[in-house]
């Protein structure tokens, strides 16, 4: 599969950056305005999927392979777990407490406020975008001729 026509490819190339930028914006400002890691992550995944649809499987596999997206998914999940356990390993703080909020003081309504909330948002954004992209790519690359059982 070589993808769609040149018009679609050009337009997809142009708007790819905007969609990813919008997704990152929603992730980063999740604690100040509506949005957050899940919404932003799904939007970023949509831009990856758009590129895959426009340019075909082979081009997409060059930029982010099946295995690579799956590993990134695991890194994201590990990061969330690590941020949760951070409180557990520090003295006198419980599991999943907002460690940074209690150790440092922040300016309210600033992008670097709310302690570890933006960090968890980033981890979730990474996890959701790569996870959904890997589901999609596995679904669309599935080739029944390679199936060995039955």
């Amino acid at each position: 599969m070589t993808g769609m026509t040149i018009i679609v490819k050009t337009v997809a190339e142009w708007i790819k950056g905007f969609i990813i930028f919008y997704g990152v914006y929603i992730v980063l400002l999740g604690h100040l305005s509506p949005g957050g890691g899940f919404a932003g992550g799904v939007i970023i995944a949509c831009s990856f999927i758009m590129m895959e649809l426009a340019f075909g499987k082979d081009q997409a596999a060059k930029e982010l392979s099946k295995h690579g997206s799956h590993l990134l998914d695991e890194y994201g999940a590990l990061a969330i777990l690590f941020l949760g356990l951070l409180g557990y390993f520090l003295p006198k703080l419980p599991f999943f407490s907002n460690v940074l909020m209690q150790k440092f003081s922040f300016i309210p309504f600033h992008i670097l406020s709310a302690g570890s909330i933006p960090l968890i948002n980033l981890a979730i954004g990474l996890k959701v975008s790569t996870g959904l992209y890997s589901v999609y790519i596995y679904l669309s690359h599935y080739d029944p001729r390679m199936q060995e059982d039955e």
Binding site: V135, Y138, L139, Y142, Q147, E150
Partner: peptide, 11 residues
């Protein structure tokens, strides 16, 4: 579910 449905479709 979609993954399962696609496998079932090809079986």
């Amino acid at each position: 579910m979609v993954a399962l449905a696609i496998r079932l479709y090809y079986v």
